[in-house]
Design a protein around this nucleic acid. Structure first.
Lengths: 248, 248
DNA sequence: GTCCGGTCTTGATCTGTGTCAAAGCTGACT
DNA sequence: AGTCAGCTTTGACACAGATCAAGACCGGAC
């Protein structure tokens, strides 16, 4: 279950600042009005595991700001990140989930609760929203499968390039920036988190990031601020000339 | 698009031999009757790619017999299998799919076509079936995420053990067999296909299968017929003591 | 300022898996 | 029966990435 004391309601949803891909009081007001249910913000603080593997999800929500990760763990402690939650991403599903949600940076979410179970409501009362939910789930499935290719077949350098291009793309689309000129963004993950995502060690991540810098594919300011002079070069490094959307 | 000449209608669905997890004329007759649409068998022959990456899926169906795989490919030819279709599995989704479906062994499917687009029909006319579709998609997503852990963090030996235990479990559940005593099954995949699934080379697969045999975890008759004397030993090798369901 | 913990980089070495190569097996076809 | 092609096994070696270890950097607490 959600640990009730790990977050707090901060404000009403009415000034939701960004467009959400899922359900959101601002952007989908006409659809959600009819649900007549509660919409509100919740804030999750960094460093917490807010949903545990095996928890039942009794809500739907959309990320407004911050970043969280979805992680699978083995008994001996090995972990694999299986998803990244960035602003505009949707959270929530019927039944139990199998991965743990860890908050990396303070994250605000728009939560939508329902009088009945959220998913019964969604399916019965608003089939068109249910259809969107299905579409988003399928998108996540596609993303997971593309990531399987990254994990199974790409080299360390290609993996790093893949991750950077995903984050760059996500960032650009949120800020309505283009991918033609240089792209600049802040890396929201530590080297260790990147390693967890890519099935590598943090040392290898560090080395490969340095290598990409030496080769002029990326520029670093500090540890986290990255500029990509030419996205097509990065995509080439990723072994990924299709510039179609990848990942979550 | 489905290559229309790559399969043929063989018989009516009325004698559908197995229970399907998805939609099936026999098992869900009351639900599907109301759709008043065509249900029929189609046979796909081994060695074909029947659906290509980027194809639009204009049908839903369920595997009756045979085996097919879902594969992602890079431009340089590296491939990663991202899903396995075994009897009782469901196929079909709105929109385009990103992976190619390859038929490994002659596969019969129950196809359900609709007067309108299949997924509009599903969502609008039968929300309870739509809900099942969502649930199945989520199950696939869970499976994909568990597989990401396998690909990213497990050793070759653990990967082999994971794959074998998945197939053993699927096989046992289809044949209503238990997992307590010895489990026997036929490996439906070549060493190369196993390697594609596991992000390994076929040589490594061969070596690790031999190693598991030498260590008494499995017994081989011929190349493909496998007996697992004690499933718990195999699960331990997989680094996977939870005997919960994995993968597709 | 100094200390300190967390993060990141770099180096040296080790090892698991890939690569290349050769040969064994098995079933299908003539 | 022989032969052939596809699949599989096994060996020798190479190399990418892991592991172990030492420091560098950087921001916050005091």
């Amino acid at each position: 279950m959600l640990k009730e004391d790990s977050f707090s309601v901060t404000q009403d949803c009415s000034d939701c600042p960004i467009r959400h891909r899922a359900v959101c009081a601002r952007c989908e007001s006409d659809e959600l009005e009819r649900l007549e249910d509660i919409k509100y913000y919740r804030r999750f603080e960094a460093g917490q595991t807010v949903i545990w593997s095996g928890d039942r999800m009794d809500f739907v929500g959309s990320v407004v700001s911050g970043i969280a990760t979805l992680t699978q763990t083995m008994e001996d402690g090995r972990t694999q990140m299986v998803g990244l939650l960035l602003p505009s991403d949707f959270v929530g599903r019927p039944g139990r989930n199998t991965a743990a949600y860890d908050v990396v940076a303070t994250t605000d979410m728009v939560m939508c609760c329902f009088r009945k179970a959220p998913f019964e409501d969604l399916m019965e009362r608003t089939p068109h929203i249910a259809q969107r939910l299905l579409q988003m789930t399928l998108d996540e499935l596609d993303a997971a499968r593309e990531w399987m290719l990254v994990l199974g077949r790409k080299t360390a350098r290609e993996k790093i390039a893949s991750l950077l291009s995903i984050i760059a793309r996500r960032d650009a689309s949120l800020n309505f920036g283009g991918l033609d000129g240089p792209v600049t963004f802040d890396l929201p993950l530590t080297r260790e988190a990147m390693a967890d995502y890519l099935g590598l060690t943090l040392e290898t991540v560090s080395r490969q990031v340095s290598a990409l810098r030496k080769d002029g594919i990326i520029t670093l300011e500090g540890k986290r601020h990255i500029t990509v002079p030419d996205m097509s070069l990065l995509l080439e490094e990723a072994g990924d000339d299709t510039d179609g959307g990848m990942l979550v």
